[in-house]
Design a protein around this nucleic acid. Structure first.
Lengths: 270, 270
DNA sequence: CCGTTTCTGTCCACAATATGGACGATGGGG
DNA sequence: CCCCATCGTCCATATTGTGGACAGAAACGG
């Protein structure tokens, strides 16, 4: 009845069986929560949630305030911004601490980090978002620390997001990009640009971003697939431009591709 | 407009302003989630969720399956039990890692643990539940490890839960006990018993449990209050019966009371 | 100081949505 | 094979959520 995905690694809502309908209110509440999660500790103003979810303001308002009463969302006294509440980590305690992916990646990331000397990021897909779940700082004295663990952005915005999209069937990727279109505006990009980047990454075998969030930086991302060959994560290296010249770029890409393959391996045989 | 609680420490839904109504579906979904959280990794069968929430089976079924589609709940392939899904910890990453309470308690727990030699638990209140958030193993060779971090039970069931209830206004405690009544049956207790224990703890100044979850063990719990003097947590020591004889019991209680006071202090002045 | 803009919060008539009683399916045990 | 326990589904009903329109509050700026 249900889909029978092996599901060794976890990922967002399985996009296989979607047809069940109803429960609109609950779905909307979750959509709001996921948007709020992108706001981290500082949170987001109501209007931004409205814009990102595409819901009407009264609806978002009602949802957010119910969630506050339930302790799932908090409102910052001063700023009036809404953010994920303290009860969410409490619910999360019900699960074992480290996911299989994180466990598998730990050793390999450490090794790779020593090898490259620049900052590495491990980013997973969760629903239509990317989520940074691990970061390793390298030995080179200039490090790009733009992203923190927990950072959450729409798939397609970050280098890792493009890589993950490039690794999935074109049609599925297009669907996700379309779904995220409303949220792209806050990140000063749009669907067409993202689709072009995806195509380029697919051709190249990895994603190369010439201009990172911080000007003067570049990054490379490779994707990691689950045993059923669905992309679930990406490894990214970020460095100042001078560290990613035409000679070093393909070298680094090769190292990241190796690391990705090793992690894929390790997930198959625990 | 909103309640103006200082809220240095976090706790469950603030029981001050409850009147807002509506959003039944969302509230019910959250109730289901909280029950599922008590099931930890192994999860719970549907029937148990029905029993604990007091909702009808079709309703719980629908809610649970929507949450599965959304990745918030998982269903274990073999057992068919429902459990908190992988997306919950992902949402939790949006928050800073350690709560003020945990930070304040860390040092003091370490010291106290060395002093007593038996297992210590730090348990918070979250809504109508208790949640074990820290555990320190002592040096004595026999340790009671009945409870793990993340364990979640209705307020009133555990020693810590009784302590927390004893520290709040009698009327509020009664209300919570009543709300949890349906869930007590699974833990082989009932409202009358719990209320008696609360009264005894209130008289004594701390809670003493003669028979713990594991036969042959005893435990003592003291409560921790927030600056606005609402109970938010409890410290518990659990030990085999011989370690908690009539001489040592009051000594230990005094040590725990000290520790609780120290933590309260530290929260006030960070 | 007082328009003006941009937020957030509230109301309420309407209908889409969630609800739960009843029935059906599944599967393990005796 | 039948029984009992558990899970899943249907569908008529009215309860619940919805969003357009309005109102208040705070930031802006001339």
């Amino acid at each position: 009845m249900d889909d029978g995905v092996p599901d060794i690694m976890d990922m967002g809502a399985a996009p296989k069986t979607e047809p069940r309908r109803g429960a609109q209110a609950i779905r909307r509440a979750l959509a709001v929560l996921r948007i709020l999660a992108a706001g981290r500790e500082t949170g987001l103003p109501l209007a931004e949630v409205v814009q990102a979810t595409g819901l009407t303001r009264p609806t978002v308002h009602r949802i957010v305030h119910v969630l506050i009463e339930e302790g799932i969302v908090e409102r910052h006294e001063k700023t009036g911004r809404y953010a994920i509440g303290s009860q969410v980590p409490e619910l999360a305690l019900a699960r074992p601490s480290r996911s299989p992916l994180l466990a598998a990646a730990d050793e390999i990331l450490k090794r790779t980090s020593r090898e490259v000397g620049d900052t590495l990021f491990l980013t997973v897909r969760t629903g239509n978002d990317t989520l940074c779940v691990d970061r390793r700082i390298g030995s080179f004295p200039i490090q790009v620390l733009s992203i923190e663990i927990g950072a959450r952005r729409p798939l397609g915005v970050s280098s890792a997001g493009v890589a993950i999209l490039a690794a999935m069937p074109a049609q599925e990727a297009r669907k996700i990009v379309a779904a995220n279109e409303a949220r792209f505006v806050s990140y000063r990009t749009n669907a067409a640009t993202v689709l072009a980047q995806i195509a380029a990454a697919r051709r190249r075998g990895y994603n190369l971003r010439e201009v990172g969030l911080v000007p003067g930086t570049k990054s490379i991302s490779t994707w990691i697939k689950t045993p059923d060959s669905r992309p679930a994560a990406a490894i990214t290296v970020s460095a100042v431009r001078m560290r990613l010249g035409p000679r070093r770029e393909p070298e680094l890409a090769e190292i990241l591709l190796d690391a990705a393959r090793s992690i894929e391996q390790k997930i198959r045989s625990p």
